[in-house]
Design a protein around this nucleic acid. Structure first.
Length: 395
RNA sequence: GGAGAGAUGGCAGAGUGGUCGAAUGCGGCGGUCUUGAAAACCGUUGUACCGCGAGGUACCGGGGGUUCGAAUCCCUCUCUCUCCGCCA
Protein backbone atom coordinates (compact mmCIF):
# COMPACT_ATOMS: atom_id res chain seq x y z
CA UNK A 1 0.00 0.00 0.00
CA UNK A 2 2.67 2.51 1.04
CA UNK A 3 4.61 1.39 -1.99
CA UNK A 4 1.76 2.57 -4.16
CA UNK A 5 1.50 5.91 -2.40
CA UNK A 6 5.22 6.56 -2.77
CA UNK A 7 5.05 5.65 -6.42
CA UNK A 8 2.10 7.95 -6.90
CA UNK A 9 3.88 10.90 -5.32
CA UNK A 10 6.78 10.16 -7.57
CA UNK A 11 4.42 10.17 -10.50
CA UNK A 12 2.99 13.57 -9.54
CA UNK A 13 6.41 15.18 -9.22
CA UNK A 14 7.57 13.78 -12.53
CA UNK A 15 4.43 14.89 -14.27
CA UNK A 16 4.67 18.42 -12.88
CA UNK A 17 8.21 18.68 -14.17
CA UNK A 18 7.37 17.21 -17.55
CA UNK A 19 4.38 19.53 -17.89
CA UNK A 20 6.57 22.53 -17.14
CA UNK A 21 9.15 21.59 -19.75
CA UNK A 22 6.46 20.83 -22.26
CA UNK A 23 5.01 24.25 -21.62
CA UNK A 24 8.39 25.84 -22.31
CA UNK A 25 8.67 23.93 -25.54
CA UNK A 26 5.15 24.82 -26.61
CA UNK A 27 5.76 28.48 -25.94
CA UNK A 28 9.04 28.38 -27.79
CA UNK A 29 7.49 26.64 -30.79
CA UNK A 30 4.82 29.24 -30.96
CA UNK A 31 7.34 32.06 -30.94
CA UNK A 32 9.35 30.36 -33.67
CA UNK A 33 6.29 30.38 -35.84
CA UNK A 34 5.80 34.08 -35.25
CA UNK A 35 9.46 34.87 -35.87
CA UNK A 36 9.36 33.07 -39.20
CA UNK A 37 6.23 34.90 -40.15
CA UNK A 38 7.72 38.29 -39.40
CA UNK A 39 10.82 37.37 -41.36
CA UNK A 40 13.26 37.18 -38.43
CA UNK A 41 14.79 33.98 -39.70
CA UNK A 42 18.02 34.26 -37.74
CA UNK A 43 16.28 34.57 -34.39
CA UNK A 44 13.99 31.75 -35.33
CA UNK A 45 16.85 29.43 -36.15
CA UNK A 46 18.52 30.37 -32.89
CA UNK A 47 15.39 29.42 -30.97
CA UNK A 48 15.14 26.22 -32.94
CA UNK A 49 18.53 25.14 -31.72
CA UNK A 50 17.33 25.46 -28.13
CA UNK A 51 14.45 23.07 -28.63
CA UNK A 52 16.49 19.95 -29.06
CA UNK A 53 17.76 20.03 -25.47
CA UNK A 54 14.28 20.57 -24.17
CA UNK A 55 12.95 17.75 -26.27
CA UNK A 56 15.51 15.37 -24.88
CA UNK A 57 14.66 16.37 -21.30
CA UNK A 58 10.97 15.88 -21.98
CA UNK A 59 11.60 12.53 -23.56
CA UNK A 60 13.46 11.33 -20.48
CA UNK A 61 10.84 12.67 -18.10
CA UNK A 62 8.00 11.15 -20.07
CA UNK A 63 9.55 7.75 -20.25
CA UNK A 64 10.12 7.92 -16.50
CA UNK A 65 6.51 8.97 -16.08
CA UNK A 66 5.05 6.13 -18.08
CA UNK A 67 7.33 3.72 -16.29
CA UNK A 68 6.09 4.93 -12.91
CA UNK A 69 2.51 4.85 -14.12
CA UNK A 70 2.64 1.32 -15.42
CA UNK A 71 4.35 0.32 -12.19
CA UNK A 72 1.47 1.80 -10.22
CA UNK A 73 -1.02 0.12 -12.50
CA UNK A 74 0.65 -3.22 -11.98
CA UNK A 75 0.45 -2.80 -8.23
CA UNK A 76 -3.13 -1.55 -8.26
CA UNK A 77 -4.40 -4.40 -10.37
CA UNK A 78 -3.09 -6.81 -7.78
CA UNK A 79 -5.03 -5.20 -4.95
CA UNK A 80 -8.15 -7.20 -4.19
CA UNK A 81 -11.40 -5.62 -3.09
CA UNK A 82 -11.77 -4.57 0.51
CA UNK A 83 -14.03 -6.99 2.41
CA UNK A 84 -17.20 -5.60 3.99
CA UNK A 85 -16.99 -5.27 7.82
CA UNK A 86 -19.50 -8.11 8.23
CA UNK A 87 -17.22 -10.59 6.45
CA UNK A 88 -16.09 -13.20 8.97
CA UNK A 89 -12.39 -13.85 9.34
CA UNK A 90 -11.10 -17.12 8.01
CA UNK A 91 -8.79 -18.89 5.64
CA UNK A 92 -11.02 -21.10 3.54
CA UNK A 93 -14.35 -22.75 3.06
CA UNK A 94 -14.39 -24.30 6.53
CA UNK A 95 -14.57 -20.84 8.04
CA UNK A 96 -17.65 -19.72 6.13
CA UNK A 97 -20.61 -18.84 8.32
CA UNK A 98 -23.98 -20.50 7.84
CA UNK A 99 -26.35 -17.57 7.55
CA UNK A 100 -29.65 -19.46 7.47
CA UNK A 101 -31.08 -22.68 6.09
CA UNK A 102 -34.36 -24.23 5.07
CA UNK A 103 -36.08 -27.13 3.40
CA UNK A 104 -36.03 -30.72 4.43
CA UNK A 105 -33.36 -33.29 3.77
CA UNK A 106 -35.16 -36.39 2.48
CA UNK A 107 -34.48 -39.77 4.07
CA UNK A 108 -33.66 -42.16 1.29
CA UNK A 109 -32.77 -45.80 1.23
CA UNK A 110 -30.50 -47.32 -1.37
CA UNK A 111 -30.30 -43.89 -2.98
CA UNK A 112 -28.46 -43.69 -6.28
CA UNK A 113 -26.12 -40.82 -7.07
CA UNK A 114 -27.28 -38.64 -9.93
CA UNK A 115 -24.75 -40.02 -12.41
CA UNK A 116 -26.32 -43.44 -12.03
CA UNK A 117 -29.83 -42.00 -12.24
CA UNK A 118 -28.78 -40.13 -15.35
CA UNK A 119 -27.83 -43.39 -16.99
CA UNK A 120 -30.81 -45.31 -15.64
CA UNK A 121 -33.32 -42.86 -17.16
CA UNK A 122 -31.05 -41.94 -20.12
CA UNK A 123 -30.96 -38.28 -19.16
CA UNK A 124 -27.30 -37.40 -19.44
CA UNK A 125 -24.56 -39.11 -21.44
CA UNK A 126 -21.16 -38.31 -19.99
CA UNK A 127 -19.26 -40.76 -22.18
CA UNK A 128 -20.76 -39.30 -25.34
CA UNK A 129 -19.67 -35.85 -24.25
CA UNK A 130 -16.18 -37.18 -23.75
CA UNK A 131 -16.24 -38.60 -27.26
CA UNK A 132 -17.44 -35.35 -28.78
CA UNK A 133 -15.38 -32.92 -26.77
CA UNK A 134 -13.82 -34.21 -23.59
CA UNK A 135 -14.49 -34.71 -19.91
CA UNK A 136 -16.78 -32.12 -18.39
CA UNK A 137 -18.91 -31.61 -21.48
CA UNK A 138 -21.97 -33.80 -20.93
CA UNK A 139 -24.66 -34.46 -23.51
CA UNK A 140 -28.19 -34.05 -22.16
CA UNK A 141 -30.76 -36.31 -23.72
CA UNK A 142 -34.52 -36.69 -23.74
CA UNK A 143 -36.07 -35.68 -20.43
CA UNK A 144 -32.63 -34.61 -19.30
CA UNK A 145 -32.41 -32.09 -22.12
CA UNK A 146 -35.94 -30.94 -21.49
CA UNK A 147 -35.21 -30.50 -17.81
CA UNK A 148 -32.42 -28.09 -18.74
CA UNK A 149 -34.80 -26.09 -20.87
CA UNK A 150 -37.45 -26.16 -18.16
CA UNK A 151 -35.07 -24.83 -15.53
CA UNK A 152 -33.75 -22.10 -17.81
CA UNK A 153 -37.27 -20.94 -18.62
CA UNK A 154 -38.37 -21.16 -15.00
CA UNK A 155 -35.40 -19.14 -13.79
CA UNK A 156 -35.78 -16.51 -16.49
CA UNK A 157 -39.51 -16.16 -15.86
CA UNK A 158 -38.90 -15.75 -12.15
CA UNK A 159 -36.25 -13.12 -12.79
CA UNK A 160 -38.30 -11.11 -15.24
CA UNK A 161 -41.25 -11.27 -12.86
CA UNK A 162 -38.95 -9.80 -10.24
CA UNK A 163 -38.23 -6.86 -12.52
CA UNK A 164 -35.05 -8.00 -14.22
CA UNK A 165 -34.71 -7.09 -17.86
CA UNK A 166 -33.69 -10.09 -19.92
CA UNK A 167 -30.71 -10.04 -22.26
CA UNK A 168 -29.13 -12.78 -24.34
CA UNK A 169 -25.43 -11.90 -24.48
CA UNK A 170 -22.55 -13.07 -26.67
CA UNK A 171 -20.69 -16.10 -25.33
CA UNK A 172 -17.31 -14.70 -26.34
CA UNK A 173 -15.91 -11.45 -25.10
CA UNK A 174 -12.86 -9.36 -25.85
CA UNK A 175 -9.98 -8.53 -23.56
CA UNK A 176 -11.44 -5.22 -22.36
CA UNK A 177 -14.55 -6.96 -21.12
CA UNK A 178 -12.51 -9.59 -19.32
CA UNK A 179 -10.62 -6.85 -17.60
CA UNK A 180 -13.72 -4.82 -16.79
CA UNK A 181 -15.26 -7.40 -14.52
CA UNK A 182 -11.94 -8.48 -13.06
CA UNK A 183 -11.45 -11.91 -14.69
CA UNK A 184 -8.34 -10.51 -16.27
CA UNK A 185 -5.61 -10.55 -15.27
CA UNK A 186 -6.54 -12.45 -12.10
CA UNK A 187 -8.23 -15.50 -13.60
CA UNK A 188 -6.55 -15.60 -16.97
CA UNK A 189 -5.99 -19.36 -16.85
CA UNK A 190 -9.60 -20.14 -15.93
CA UNK A 191 -11.07 -18.90 -19.19
CA UNK A 192 -10.92 -20.57 -22.57
CA UNK A 193 -8.95 -18.28 -24.81
CA UNK A 194 -9.45 -18.19 -28.57
CA UNK A 195 -6.01 -16.91 -29.43
CA UNK A 196 -6.66 -16.61 -33.16
CA UNK A 197 -9.10 -13.77 -32.51
CA UNK A 198 -8.03 -12.93 -28.98
CA UNK A 199 -11.47 -13.62 -27.56
CA UNK A 200 -12.45 -15.37 -24.35
CA UNK A 201 -15.32 -17.78 -23.76
CA UNK A 202 -17.35 -16.37 -20.93
CA UNK A 203 -17.07 -18.12 -17.56
CA UNK A 204 -20.37 -16.49 -16.59
CA UNK A 205 -22.91 -14.12 -18.14
CA UNK A 206 -21.75 -11.62 -15.54
CA UNK A 207 -18.93 -10.68 -17.89
CA UNK A 208 -20.87 -9.57 -20.98
CA UNK A 209 -23.86 -8.29 -19.00
CA UNK A 210 -21.87 -6.14 -16.59
CA UNK A 211 -19.74 -4.87 -19.45
CA UNK A 212 -22.87 -3.46 -21.05
CA UNK A 213 -22.18 -0.65 -18.61
CA UNK A 214 -18.52 -0.18 -19.42
CA UNK A 215 -17.79 3.53 -20.08
CA UNK A 216 -21.34 4.46 -19.24
CA UNK A 217 -22.59 7.38 -17.18
CA UNK A 218 -26.10 6.73 -15.90
CA UNK A 219 -28.62 9.15 -14.53
CA UNK A 220 -29.14 8.80 -10.80
CA UNK A 221 -32.83 8.19 -11.34
CA UNK A 222 -32.11 5.22 -13.60
CA UNK A 223 -30.71 3.27 -10.64
CA UNK A 224 -31.00 0.48 -9.87
CA UNK A 225 -30.63 -1.18 -13.28
CA UNK A 226 -31.66 -4.84 -13.20
CA UNK A 227 -30.61 -7.31 -15.87
CA UNK A 228 -30.91 -11.06 -16.13
CA UNK A 229 -29.42 -13.39 -18.68
CA UNK A 230 -29.24 -17.03 -19.54
CA UNK A 231 -25.96 -18.24 -20.94
CA UNK A 232 -23.80 -21.25 -21.28
CA UNK A 233 -20.67 -20.84 -19.15
CA UNK A 234 -17.22 -22.17 -19.90
CA UNK A 235 -14.55 -22.83 -17.33
CA UNK A 236 -11.24 -24.54 -17.75
CA UNK A 237 -11.15 -25.46 -14.06
CA UNK A 238 -7.44 -25.96 -14.44
CA UNK A 239 -6.01 -27.90 -11.58
CA UNK A 240 -9.28 -28.43 -9.75
CA UNK A 241 -10.07 -31.96 -10.84
CA UNK A 242 -9.97 -34.75 -8.36
CA UNK A 243 -12.36 -36.26 -5.85
CA UNK A 244 -15.91 -34.89 -5.66
CA UNK A 245 -16.08 -33.96 -9.29
CA UNK A 246 -18.03 -36.89 -10.63
CA UNK A 247 -21.09 -36.43 -12.74
CA UNK A 248 -22.48 -32.91 -12.73
CA UNK A 249 -20.51 -31.72 -9.74
CA UNK A 250 -17.97 -29.85 -11.83
CA UNK A 251 -18.16 -29.19 -15.55
CA UNK A 252 -16.29 -27.27 -18.22
CA UNK A 253 -19.53 -26.16 -19.80
CA UNK A 254 -22.75 -25.55 -17.94
CA UNK A 255 -25.88 -23.43 -18.09
CA UNK A 256 -26.75 -20.64 -15.76
CA UNK A 257 -29.17 -17.78 -15.33
CA UNK A 258 -27.47 -14.73 -13.91
CA UNK A 259 -28.92 -11.63 -12.31
CA UNK A 260 -26.99 -8.36 -12.36
CA UNK A 261 -27.75 -5.01 -10.79
CA UNK A 262 -26.15 -1.61 -11.00
CA UNK A 263 -27.05 0.08 -7.75
CA UNK A 264 -26.72 3.35 -5.91
CA UNK A 265 -23.88 3.16 -3.35
CA UNK A 266 -26.30 4.30 -0.64
CA UNK A 267 -28.44 1.19 -0.86
CA UNK A 268 -26.38 -1.49 -2.58
CA UNK A 269 -26.51 -3.71 0.51
CA UNK A 270 -30.32 -3.61 0.47
CA UNK A 271 -30.06 -4.63 -3.16
CA UNK A 272 -27.76 -7.48 -2.17
CA UNK A 273 -30.34 -8.68 0.38
CA UNK A 274 -33.01 -8.51 -2.26
CA UNK A 275 -30.93 -10.59 -4.66
CA UNK A 276 -30.21 -13.16 -1.97
CA UNK A 277 -33.94 -13.33 -1.23
CA UNK A 278 -34.60 -13.91 -4.92
CA UNK A 279 -32.17 -16.83 -5.10
CA UNK A 280 -33.65 -18.20 -1.90
CA UNK A 281 -37.15 -18.11 -3.37
CA UNK A 282 -35.90 -20.25 -6.25
CA UNK A 283 -34.46 -23.07 -4.18
CA UNK A 284 -37.58 -22.97 -2.02
CA UNK A 285 -39.87 -23.25 -5.01
CA UNK A 286 -37.81 -26.17 -6.25
CA UNK A 287 -38.39 -27.82 -2.84
CA UNK A 288 -34.69 -28.36 -2.24
CA UNK A 289 -32.99 -28.31 1.15
CA UNK A 290 -30.80 -25.23 1.12
CA UNK A 291 -28.47 -23.13 3.19
CA UNK A 292 -26.82 -19.77 2.75
CA UNK A 293 -23.20 -19.16 3.64
CA UNK A 294 -21.59 -15.85 4.36
CA UNK A 295 -18.14 -16.26 2.85
CA UNK A 296 -15.16 -15.58 5.05
CA UNK A 297 -12.29 -13.35 4.01
CA UNK A 298 -10.17 -16.23 2.79
CA UNK A 299 -12.87 -17.66 0.54
CA UNK A 300 -13.95 -14.32 -0.87
CA UNK A 301 -13.17 -13.74 -4.52
CA UNK A 302 -10.65 -11.15 -5.60
CA UNK A 303 -13.30 -8.70 -6.70
CA UNK A 304 -16.04 -9.05 -4.09
CA UNK A 305 -16.73 -7.08 -0.92
CA UNK A 306 -19.39 -9.44 0.41
CA UNK A 307 -20.56 -12.77 -0.98
CA UNK A 308 -23.32 -15.17 -0.02
CA UNK A 309 -23.11 -18.69 -1.38
CA UNK A 310 -26.14 -20.89 -1.79
CA UNK A 311 -25.89 -24.62 -1.36
CA UNK A 312 -28.43 -27.34 -1.87
CA UNK A 313 -28.24 -30.75 -0.28
CA UNK A 314 -27.77 -33.68 -2.57
CA UNK A 315 -29.19 -36.60 -0.68
CA UNK A 316 -27.46 -39.54 -2.31
CA UNK A 317 -24.01 -38.00 -2.30
CA UNK A 318 -24.83 -36.72 1.17
CA UNK A 319 -23.15 -33.42 0.58
CA UNK A 320 -23.89 -29.77 0.04
CA UNK A 321 -23.43 -28.43 -3.49
CA UNK A 322 -22.89 -24.79 -4.33
CA UNK A 323 -25.50 -23.52 -6.75
CA UNK A 324 -25.28 -19.79 -6.45
CA UNK A 325 -22.99 -17.02 -5.40
CA UNK A 326 -24.41 -13.55 -4.81
CA UNK A 327 -21.95 -10.69 -4.42
CA UNK A 328 -21.65 -6.98 -3.96
CA UNK A 329 -18.56 -5.65 -5.72
CA UNK A 330 -19.18 -2.10 -4.57
CA UNK A 331 -17.04 0.13 -6.79
CA UNK A 332 -14.42 -2.48 -7.60
CA UNK A 333 -15.78 -3.40 -11.02
CA UNK A 334 -17.29 0.05 -11.61
CA UNK A 335 -13.85 1.56 -11.24
CA UNK A 336 -12.42 -0.70 -13.92
CA UNK A 337 -15.48 -0.34 -16.09
CA UNK A 338 -15.71 3.44 -15.64
CA UNK A 339 -19.34 2.86 -14.74
CA UNK A 340 -20.66 5.98 -13.11
CA UNK A 341 -23.86 7.85 -12.41
CA UNK A 342 -24.58 11.53 -12.17
CA UNK A 343 -26.69 13.12 -9.48
CA UNK A 344 -29.14 15.71 -10.69
CA UNK A 345 -27.44 19.09 -10.85
CA UNK A 346 -23.98 17.72 -10.14
CA UNK A 347 -21.24 17.97 -12.67
CA UNK A 348 -18.95 15.21 -11.56
CA UNK A 349 -20.25 11.66 -11.92
CA UNK A 350 -19.47 9.11 -9.22
CA UNK A 351 -18.89 5.38 -9.31
CA UNK A 352 -21.89 3.11 -9.06
CA UNK A 353 -21.98 -0.25 -7.28
CA UNK A 354 -22.29 -3.50 -9.21
CA UNK A 355 -23.78 -6.73 -7.91
CA UNK A 356 -24.49 -10.09 -9.41
CA UNK A 357 -25.68 -13.51 -8.50
CA UNK A 358 -26.49 -16.86 -10.00
CA UNK A 359 -30.20 -17.48 -10.17
CA UNK A 360 -29.31 -20.24 -10.59
CA UNK A 361 -26.59 -22.51 -11.98
CA UNK A 362 -28.15 -25.63 -13.43
CA UNK A 363 -26.00 -28.75 -13.09
CA UNK A 364 -25.94 -29.12 -9.32
CA UNK A 365 -29.62 -28.19 -9.12
CA UNK A 366 -30.23 -31.04 -11.53
CA UNK A 367 -28.04 -33.32 -9.42
CA UNK A 368 -30.01 -32.46 -6.30
CA UNK A 369 -33.39 -32.79 -7.97
CA UNK A 370 -32.49 -36.20 -9.40
CA UNK A 371 -31.08 -37.52 -6.16
CA UNK A 372 -33.61 -36.05 -3.74
CA UNK A 373 -36.68 -36.80 -5.81
CA UNK A 374 -35.91 -40.37 -6.80
CA UNK A 375 -38.69 -42.84 -6.12
CA UNK A 376 -39.33 -46.39 -7.10
CA UNK A 377 -41.67 -45.06 -9.81
CA UNK A 378 -39.18 -42.62 -11.30
CA UNK A 379 -38.04 -39.10 -10.59
CA UNK A 380 -40.63 -36.71 -9.28
CA UNK A 381 -40.63 -33.35 -11.07
CA UNK A 382 -40.88 -30.37 -8.69
CA UNK A 383 -44.35 -28.79 -8.96
CA UNK A 384 -43.12 -25.49 -10.33
CA UNK A 385 -41.41 -27.28 -13.21
CA UNK A 386 -44.36 -29.45 -14.22
CA UNK A 387 -45.83 -26.80 -16.58
CA UNK A 388 -42.44 -26.51 -18.28
CA UNK A 389 -41.83 -30.27 -18.38
CA UNK A 390 -45.29 -31.45 -19.25
CA UNK A 391 -44.93 -34.39 -16.89
CA UNK A 392 -44.98 -35.02 -13.17
CA UNK A 393 -42.65 -37.96 -13.30
CA UNK A 394 -39.53 -38.79 -15.25
CA UNK A 395 -39.64 -42.51 -15.94
C1' G B 1 -11.79 -14.34 -47.95
C1' G B 2 -11.30 -10.11 -52.16
C1' A B 3 -11.92 -4.71 -53.40
C1' G B 4 -12.92 0.13 -51.75
C1' A B 5 -14.24 4.04 -48.14
C1' G B 6 -13.90 5.79 -43.40
C1' A B 7 -12.89 6.62 -37.74
C1' U B 8 -13.10 14.36 -35.07
C1' G B 9 -16.83 16.72 -28.83
C1' G B 10 -23.80 13.70 -26.35
C1' C B 11 -25.16 13.28 -31.83
C1' A B 12 -24.47 15.16 -36.91
C1' G B 13 -20.51 17.31 -39.37
C1' A B 14 -16.33 21.04 -41.04
C1' G B 15 -11.32 21.33 -40.65
C1' U B 16 -5.17 18.82 -45.04
C1' G B 17 1.39 21.76 -40.95
C1' G B 18 1.37 27.16 -36.59
C1' U B 19 -3.65 32.00 -34.64
C1' C B 20 -7.43 24.39 -33.47
C1' G B 21 -9.59 21.98 -27.59
C1' A B 22 -11.19 22.35 -32.50
C1' A B 23 -16.30 26.00 -37.13
C1' U B 24 -21.43 25.14 -37.76
C1' G B 25 -26.05 22.60 -36.76
C1' C B 26 -28.88 19.58 -33.37
C1' G B 27 -29.45 18.19 -28.42
C1' G B 28 -28.63 19.63 -23.00
C1' C B 29 -28.50 23.54 -19.27
C1' G B 30 -29.50 28.87 -17.72
C1' G B 31 -32.06 33.32 -19.03
C1' U B 32 -35.33 37.11 -21.81
C1' C B 33 -40.28 37.23 -23.63
C1' U B 34 -45.22 34.63 -22.02
C1' U B 35 -50.85 33.71 -17.50
C1' G B 36 -48.18 28.94 -18.75
C1' A B 37 -45.93 26.45 -22.76
C1' A B 38 -44.06 26.52 -27.73
C1' A B 39 -41.46 29.61 -31.10
C1' A B 40 -37.85 33.38 -31.27
C1' C B 41 -33.64 35.64 -29.13
C1' C B 42 -29.26 35.83 -25.63
C1' G B 43 -25.76 33.10 -22.84
C1' U B 44 -23.64 28.49 -21.60
C1' U B 45 -22.28 23.37 -22.46
C1' G B 46 -16.08 17.46 -23.26
C1' U B 47 -12.77 14.30 -20.27
C1' A B 48 -8.44 13.11 -17.39
C1' C B 49 -4.09 14.51 -14.70
C1' C B 50 -0.96 18.28 -11.90
C1' G B 51 -1.57 22.82 -8.86
C1' C B 52 -4.21 26.06 -2.62
C1' G B 53 -4.87 29.27 -6.76
C1' A B 54 -3.76 31.84 -11.16
C1' G B 55 -2.94 28.41 -14.35
C1' G B 56 -0.52 24.22 -16.80
C1' U B 57 -0.42 19.39 -19.47
C1' A B 58 -2.60 15.53 -22.30
C1' C B 59 -6.55 13.71 -25.39
C1' C B 60 -9.49 14.54 -32.87
C1' G B 61 -9.90 5.29 -33.06
C1' G B 62 -4.82 2.73 -30.61
C1' G B 63 0.57 2.66 -31.06
C1' G B 64 5.00 4.58 -33.41
C1' G B 65 7.54 8.22 -36.65
C1' U B 66 8.76 13.04 -39.43
C1' U B 67 8.92 18.39 -37.69
C1' C B 68 10.94 23.89 -33.79
C1' G B 69 5.48 22.87 -34.26
C1' A B 70 0.66 17.40 -36.23
C1' A B 71 -6.57 16.51 -35.96
C1' U B 72 -3.80 17.70 -40.56
C1' C B 73 2.18 14.29 -43.38
C1' C B 74 4.36 8.96 -43.02
C1' C B 75 4.25 3.77 -40.93
C1' U B 76 1.47 0.20 -38.28
C1' C B 77 -2.58 -2.00 -35.64
C1' U B 78 -7.73 -2.19 -34.47
C1' C B 79 -12.60 -1.26 -35.60
C1' U B 80 -16.83 0.37 -38.73
C1' C B 81 -19.34 0.88 -43.41
C1' U B 82 -20.23 -0.36 -48.86
C1' C B 83 -19.74 -3.92 -52.85
C1' C B 84 -18.34 -9.05 -54.21
C1' G B 85 -17.68 -14.17 -52.54
C1' C B 86 -19.17 -17.84 -48.90
C1' C B 87 -22.88 -19.11 -45.47
C1' A B 88 -26.65 -20.60 -40.32
Amino acid sequence: MSEIITADNDRKATQAEADKKQNELNTLSKSIGELFKSGKTDEANEARAKTSDLKEEIRVLNSKLSETESGIQKLLVQVPNLPHPSVPEGKGEDDNMVEREGGEIPKLENALPHWELATKYDLIDFELGTKLTGAGFPVYKGWGAKLQRALINFFLDEATNAGYNEVLPPLLVNEESGFGTGQLPDKEGQMYHVTEDNLYLIPTAEVPVTNIFRDVVLDEKELPVKKCAYSACFRREAGSWGAHVRGLNRLHQFDKVEIVQVAHPDNSYDVLEQMVAHAQSLVEKLELPWRILRLCGGDLSFTSALTFDFEVYSAAQERWLEVSSVSNFETYQANRLKLRFRKAGEKKPQLAHTLNGSALALPRIVAAILENNQTSEGIRVPKVLVPFMGTEMIK
